[in-house]
Design a protein around this nucleic acid. Structure first.
Lengths: 342, 342
DNA sequence: CTGAAAGCGCTTACAG
DNA sequence: CTGAAAGCGCTTACAG
């Protein structure tokens, strides 16, 4: 029986119309849940569609101006668990609503816009989810102009017309810093990520706020620049160690840097967390494997993709959504890299 | 809808034809590199296309029977570095040839076929790259029937009509086992992955061959079942340790299990590699982070995606390819989890 | 070498 | 509540 179904895959709307003894317009109304067909007929046609395993041709639907049920996801890369989990969130959610996914990785910035333009021009997607480090204003204008619904992920634009879902990095960092402080740490070093990265800055701000709230004076000498890499964290920590400025804990902008920091500290003959506590950010897989397992801040990555997709699909369905900015909460994961200062 | 039309600033082939003062057929011939247009005219039209930033509508091309320049990738999951790297290989390569990617993750087996059928029926992809644990015969028949080009990844079918690219797991395991043997190990335990997994079995066979070639007797008591998970490796190793059967090295079917094995050995108060050497398979990120860094076998993951895509695009272009089965080589990564026997 | 016309499978006014 | 017809943007015989 299933073999029979499979062979019917090239049916068109005309075939269904003939089988049902109606015009193809009627079938189209049923497919798109539009009014103008009696309940009875509707059921009959639906049954035929089901039995024949008929699936409307997306290309034709796209051409005819109707929805294609494809969502475009624009993302910097895939070979990174962070992005991979976002893709997963988007994929699972779009599937749930019967949408299929078009994937566009941007790698280098340059060609990105062209590729998205191509995508939009191809009439193949009903909407776009966009994640990028930096998005030019005139590109945003282009998107608005096209009238295609889109949602930004993890991109902190002030533009009030734009829908976006971001992680509350500041609150996450605040919570993490407060945890360190609750353990008795006052001299806390901070390892910055990329200078331009807004999330690194948000984390830094959260860190500073926690200091302020707890009346701890901020020591600029305890801040070291990095670049979100393991190597960067290693080098920054070595510098810190050589500087001679005393500190009992390190707040790293991300786990990769925290892992580099652990290595630098071990090389110096010191112990984590006995001599120095370390806290990271991201909760990457490696953070649970290294010795000691890293205390860190988990981002709701899967949920970001899910939320963005839900918003986009509602937008595609022309629902009105009052709220434009969505902020998702992080979660502190306590493991063994932080210790109370006795 | 009408809103869409109003905002429709998109150029069509008619616009280009008007600008060039020719019929749209001529423009189409130029776009598709078909004969029948003078060199001079061809250049002129190409320049206009370039200047206007015109991109043909994929939906219309798909409908009209031409290529859509979309490739469909069917894959079990994305939130796994292995798959993520395959996606990356496919993505980068398809972009290079001006193809765009449609992504379909299968998660549960059940709905997979339906989704791929949907995809094919949508007329949106020129070809398919398929990766799955298990593919039913009648599904393969369906694919053949459709006449759509497709390539299997990492799926060892004997069907001679099917194009596939796989990793030479057996050779990789053979090399790894020989390395252990060259270090003086004779009593080597083997941690199996999923029973049904063909790659686990291929690795086991490679392991056995190395034993045979080196005239080492195989001891069935030194084989323990696992399931490719860290937990499974941990449990299997504990069993092995309790069994009392002597061994100096462990060959784990994958890195996750190897990592579990390391933990079990450490818990027993033994040291890696001083008391027991361990070798893994896959070269996942964690393998370089754990203590000690794991000696393992790296799969050419990115290359798998790349190769499959290259084959598929040649197939789409109706080139004949004599070879149907492609086998990619692994690489032994020597780190610190193996040690020569005194 | 070029253009007019049919057709791909669908949606959507529009008329009945 | 239903059907005939136009049209979406493209490709491809076909005639010139």
């Amino acid at each position: 029986m299933s073999a029979k179904k499979i062979k019917n895959s090239k049916l068109t709307i005309d075939d269904i119309a003939k089988l049902a003894g109606v015009s193809k317009a009627t079938v189209s109304y049923v497919i798109n849940d539009k009014p103008g067909v009696s309940q009875e007929l509707r059921c009959k046609i639906k049954k035929i569609i089901e039995d024949c395993n008929y699936v409307p041709n997306s290309a034709a639907r796209g051409l005819a101006g109707e929805k294609t049920h494809f969502i475009g996801l624009v993302i910097p890369d895939v070979s990174d668990m962070f992005y991979a989990n976002i893709i997963r969130g988007v994929e699972k959610t779009s599937n749930k609503y019967n949408y299929l996914l078009n994937l566009y990785t941007t790698h280098g910035e340059e060609e990105k816009e062209q590729r998205v333009i191509k995508l939009i021009n191809s009439s193949m997607v009903d909407g776009l989810i966009i994640m990028a480090y930096y998005i030019k204003d005139n590109f945003i204008d282009f998107l608005k102009n096209e009238g295609i619904p889109f949602v930004f992920i993890d991109y902190p634009t002030k533009d009030e017309e734009i829908y976006s879902v971001v992680v509350d990095n500041e609150a996450g960092a605040f919570e993490a810093a407060e945890y360190l402080i609750s353990l008795g740490h006052q001299k806390i070093a901070f390892l910055e990520g990329h200078e331009a990265a807004w999330d690194s800055r948000a984390r830094f701000i959260g860190f500073l706020k926690a200091l302020t709230v707890n009346s701890i004076e901020f020591n600029p000498l305890l801040v070291e620049k990095g670049d979100f890499t393991r190597e960067g964290g290693y080098k920054a920590t070595k510098k810190l160690l050589e500087k001679g400025e005393e500190f009992t804990a390190i707040f790293a902008s991300n786990d990769q840097m925290a892992i580099g920091a652990v290595r630098a500290i071990k090389e110096k003959g010191l112990k984590v967390p006995d001599n120095i506590s370390i806290i990271g950010f991201d909760n990457i897989e490696a953070s649970s494997i290294i010795d000691p397992p890293l205390t860190t801040v988990m981002q709701p990555i899967y949920e970001i993709g899910k939320k963005a997709t839900e918003i986009l699909i509602r937008l595609i369905n022309e629902e009105k959504i009052e709220q434009k900015k969505f902020m998702l909460k992080t979660k502190l994961i306590k493991r063994n890299s932080c210790k109370a200062l006795n």
